[in-house]
Design a protein around this nucleic acid. Structure first.
Lengths: 228, 228
DNA sequence: GTCTATAAAGTGATAGAC
DNA sequence: GTCTATCACTTTATAGAC
């Protein structure tokens, strides 16, 4: 797998770091060319010299952060499916494979965790169509892959119903990443990401399972149908 | 209740209508002053003459559309609570009261329904802090009101847990309003809003209820009776 | 009320010196 | 590679004629 190598220091590195922080904090649309070069303490020409344009820089960041997440998702799903070979996999474990990679272990960034999550939220809140092709393809592939896994685990649900429920999970996830967490009011300090993630996984699994009597036709060999 | 009266025709009306469409389609940040006056076919000075600034116009739209939704939410919650006087209210009915007002019955706009929902999505995706005070106050009040209703219906959950779950519901809702619905791929045409709303309500209720044995002193029956 | 003209600042991007 | 200077354009907003 060829991964683009970014410099460890120098203006190019500073531009990348500055852009990450600014995009995470304010969103892609609200950060100008000059905001980035200003924050990176380079001259205005540096961004174009190193990246070609503002859009290219954004696409670079999308690929750089979204792809490792989606690769980690796929790897985890495969591990889960190997573990339950043939049998229906528990919804919680599928959700875990989908959501845990957002927590930050794929982080190749010096960003503090809350800021990094906000950046991931900004990225995944984008319409998939506005992803650069390199990231869009993997994103679509991973989504389809997980929909199939869910379909196998919840055969009672139609593809349409499942697509909607997965859409709800996606929305909840993005909102949490971007949040404004609901505990800013509460006395309790920043919750560990782990605790939040656990809550989100349980919530999502319950929503996905809604109305389904027994999610696992544990004794059946129907995986031939879904063998992919 | 004093509701600001907007003109039925003329440039001011055209500016409002044009702004609604553009903001719904592209988001607040991406629509310029000139986009609006251009689309409304007024001169560039008209927006400032009639509204003072771009920001004032946005605040006006937020108040104009968010407040009726929140008022409708509160009215519906009160109706539900009257209906179940004293007894714990079914989660589905609380979710219904919270979510149904987004469907469009509070719409005071000529916008087509999908576009109107996108506008509501844009509005409710904003940080509450960026609401104008007039709308922020009602928004906060309504949120707290519903959290209390949920807490009463699900006494087993801590305030913290409930706040997180409500946060997840909010995220799913915003994502659906903004969507990109997941059926653009499917052959089936635009789903009725009603069907989507039913799915979202059932999903949310299941997520909120997760892990709770008996949700109410008065249990049994509500799901069966309630027909979405 | 409506318009043209324009101000004052910001935008992405480039040329060309060092 | 890095910089200054600048281009061509868009941004919000206002002054002042009609």
């Amino acid at each position: 797998m060829r991964v683009k190598k970014f410099p460890e220091s120098g203006p190019k590195r500073r531009l990348l770091d500055a852009a990450e922080v600014l995009f995470a904090e304010r969103g892609f649309e609200s950060v100008s060319f000059r905001d980035i070069t200003g924050s990176a303490e380079t001259n205005i020409a540096a961004l174009n010299y190193h990246f070609g344009s503002r859009e290219v820089l954004i696409d670079l960041l999308i690929v750089h952060y979204a792809n490792p997440v989606n690769e980690e998702r796929l790897a985890r799903l495969e591990a889960v499916e190997r573990k339950w070979a043939g049998k229906a996999t528990p919804i919680e474990e599928v959700c875990d494979a989908w959501l845990r990679p957002l927590q930050g272990m794929t982080r190749k960034s010096k960003l503090a965790e809350p800021l990094f999550q906000k950046l991931l939220g900004r990225i995944f809140a984008l319409a998939p169509a506005s992803f650069p092709p390199e990231a869009q393809q993997l994103q679509t592939h991973a989504s389809n892959r997980f929909l199939k896994a869910l379909s196998k685990a919840l055969p009672a649900l139609s593809g349409e119903e499942l697509a909607w429920r997965a859409h709800f999970v996606e929305g909840a996830t993005i909102h949490v990443l971007l949040g404004q967490n609901p505990l800013s009011n509460h006395a309790s300090a920043t919750p560990t990401t782990e605790a939040m993630l656990g809550r989100l996984i349980r919530f999502s699994a319950a929503g996905l399972r809604e109305g389904v009597e027994s999610e696992a036709p544990a004794k059946k060999g129907p995986q031939a149908i879904f063998d992919f």
